[in-house]
Simulated scan of single mutants.
Amino acid sequence: MRSKVSTEGGTKRSSPLTQQAYPGCREALREALARRGTPLAALDLMLASLSDNTIKQYSVTLRLWWEYCAAHNTTVYTKSIPFILSFLTEQFSKGCSYGSLNSHRSALSLFLNDKIGSDDSIKRLLKGAYKLKPSLPKYTSTWDPQIVLNYVSNWYPNLELRLEDITKKLAILLALTTAHRVQTLSLIKIENISITGNGVKIAIIDIIKTSCPGRDQPTLYLPFFKDNLKICPASTLNDYIFVTKNMRASNVGNLFLTLKSPHKAATAQTISRWIKQVLSESGVDVGTYSAHSTRHAATSAALAAGVSVDTIRKTAGWTSSSTAFARFYNRPIIDESGFAKAVVLPN
């Protein structure tokens, strides 16, 4: 990335790099890493460490950084801690939450200097931001999965359902009984599904959000619920594979297919939309709860039913030492009729 040359009064001068259009997150990071002496041959490998979601997240920061540097007529590659503090303070004054501010810090640490995140002044500013505007959990309660299960139990027999209905039924059942993210469900491949008399085992071999060196890839287990086939996830999956067998192109190995021909692999966004539609039809307030809330509802219900925290962590893909469930997912299940039941039907 080179400075443009402008002329004013017949004199050539280099304009600041901030006057250039924002080149995009990957190109900006590539240039920053190269300026710090990273060998050119290593750049692609280093950038490969960042997921697409991280790139999107960091792109928000870098675009704001580009604009801020342009407004102050300074290079985007400045490493001045006071200048960074001013940038973060301005974002906070514009309504930036502590979480977003921390994301900005992370992006700038990679872009400018890995030591920014450990700077005492930066840490002090973030601590102040947290105290003035603490991050609150998205949900203070969650919905009862039984409401949704009762609703989709009416979608039976599976082989008589429309493609749309059996697809949505499978999506919601897998989301609830595995407690995994929609991203994981979108990566299920037919070739990695093993069906036995006892149930279904699904190996996830693609990189997911929690993948990292030294951590096992998740394996999903679905037992056959022979006493309640109407909401049996293993049976529904088996029936879905049968229904979609002749719809699959030879190059589409993903489990979930789009509803319209030609049937392609369904994206995580599409599966999220299906799940949210089922939640809405079941009576769950989708103005409050997203498709991701299935993870909250399922894990909270499992704990209430007596399932150990260790089992919940393992099933949902958290490490044995993770505090994510306790901090963000374990929520009381809403029972709006609880008071009336206690009055009319006392123990």
Rank of each mutant, 00 (worst) to 15 (best):
A171D: 06
A171N: 05
A171C: 08
I172G: 01
L173I: 10
L173Q: 12
L173S: 06
L174C: 08
L174N: 03
A175E: 05
A175T: 03
L176G: 00
L176W: 00
L176E: 01
L176M: 07
L176V: 05
L176S: 00
L176R: 02
L176A: 04
L176N: 00
T177Q: 12
T177F: 15
T178G: 01
T178H: 05
T178L: 03
A179Q: 01
A179I: 07
A179K: 00
R181S: 12
R181T: 08
R181K: 14
V182K: 03
V182M: 07
Q183K: 12
Q183S: 13
Q183Y: 02
T184P: 03
T184Y: 01
L185R: 09
L185T: 02
I188K: 10
I188N: 06
I190G: 00
I190K: 15
I190R: 15
I190N: 08
I190S: 12
E191R: 15
E191F: 04
E191T: 12
E191S: 15
E191Q: 15
E191N: 13
N192C: 10
N192F: 06
N192P: 02
I193G: 09
I193Y: 06
I193R: 11
S194R: 13
I195A: 12
T196V: 10
T196D: 12
T196N: 12
G197E: 15
G197A: 14
N198R: 14
N198L: 10
N198M: 09
G199S: 09
G199P: 03
G199Q: 11
V200Y: 05
V200K: 08
V200Q: 11
K201P: 00
K201D: 07
K201R: 14
I204E: 00
I205V: 14
D206G: 05
D206M: 03
I207L: 07
I207A: 07
I207S: 14
I208M: 07
I208V: 15
I208D: 05
K209A: 08
K209E: 07
K209P: 12
K209F: 09
T210F: 01
S211V: 05
S211M: 03
S211D: 10
S211C: 06
C212W: 01
C212A: 13
P213V: 04
P213S: 10
G214I: 10
G214W: 11
G214K: 11
R215F: 05
R215L: 12
D216N: 13
D216Q: 14
Q217I: 01
Q217N: 14
P218Q: 07
P218W: 02
P218N: 08
P218G: 09
